[in-house]
Design a protein around this nucleic acid. Structure first.
Lengths: 178, 178
DNA sequence: GTCGTGATGACAGTCTACTGCCAATTGGGG
DNA sequence: CCCCAATTGGCAGTAGACTGTCATCACGAC
């Protein structure tokens, strides 16, 4: 399908170059998703990150740590978002019979209304985006996302030379470079 | 314990459900990339975002705004990162014959050294990640990322019903949408 | 019953990206 | 020549995610 020899410059087909473009595209795709979520959500008074939390709690109450695991975020990040949602009256913390300290977040009636409105828009949005793309392509795409994530997570991120030395020089990241 | 509600939708093949899982995967893939970049970069004193700027400037000097366009970020974000890189001695601003105010960023010898070390690691990393994946699959994946981004960017993010009413009922966080 | 480990919530601080606003520069039209 | 729009840099403020740290709670080992 593609001639291998000539013109590798414009859009390089070297695996490493393709991969770098993919990294850039992933960043921009995530930014686009966040932009969309913020825009749609703002019409209902919530940002993309709050929407995410609402979506998790819409199914069934969860502790903050459980929400974080589902979203792939840190406890502390979700904690902050959840606190704000409680302040706004969209979420309430209810007692957890299994753990006196780890209360469960649950949508208030107001929170449920917001989520319902957003879910409806999201359904249409998803269908719009998926239109014309075969289910097989979508599933392949989803699988590839997972494969790449696995590989990146399991890649050896440590230097091959004096790992302990390099690690000792860390600790202040950017600030150490004065 | 964390098998939660994922069961019901775990293998859903409805396009909208697949799409929602894709969104989640994109977020986590981006987080994984950032984690990797920070880990590798920290061994050389730079974070993932600084690495990105160094990579752009490695080819040829650019103005801050030009870097931002290349990375798909806002001017102000890149400006801040670039200022820090200048403080750290990895980048220097040189005169721009075409614009007296928009100076061009260029790697200092120290910056070039850091970038060279990172580029070498990155090359190996990209090859590791792409191993076993056909070039065609990679290119298809790259194309799909672009397609989805286009659709999301061009999706109708506005409500179909009385936007001004919804906005009027907000108040606090609505400021972002002015 | 007591202790240690892990999970959890809470608080503080950092980093990065965003928006908003303003000043200076550039290039084109009136 | 002067004015205007677009571009650019600079500064301020906000949002969200991260790490680090500590106290508390649950649970199993002893």
């Amino acid at each position: 399908m593609v001639r291998i020899a000539a013109r590798a410059s414009a859009a390089s087909r070297q695996p490493a170059d393709v991969f770098q473009r993919i990294v850039n595209e992933v960043f921009q795709l995530q930014a686009a998703i966040l932009r969309y979520g913020d825009t749609v959500g703002s019409n209902h008074g919530v940002s993309a990150s709050r929407w995410q939390v609402l979506a998790v709690l819409a199914r069934t109450p969860f502790s903050v740590a459980a929400i974080a695991r589902r979203l792939g975020l840190k406890r502390q990040s979700v904690q902050r978002t959840t606190d704000l949602l409680v302040d706004e009256g969209l979420v309430e913390m209810i007692a957890n019979p299994d753990h006196s300290r780890a209360k469960l977040g649950r949508l208030t009636p107001a929170g449920a209304r917001v989520h319902a409105a957003l879910a409806e828009r999201q359904q249409q949005f998803c269908l719009d985006c998926a239109r014309g793309i075969s289910l097989g392509d979508l599933l392949r795409f989803e699988r590839m996302l997972g494969v790449l994530r696995d590989r990146i997570d399991h890649a050896d991120a440590q230097p091959r030379i004096e790992r302990h030395v390099a690690r000792a020089t860390r600790g202040s990241k950017g600030g150490s470079k004065k």
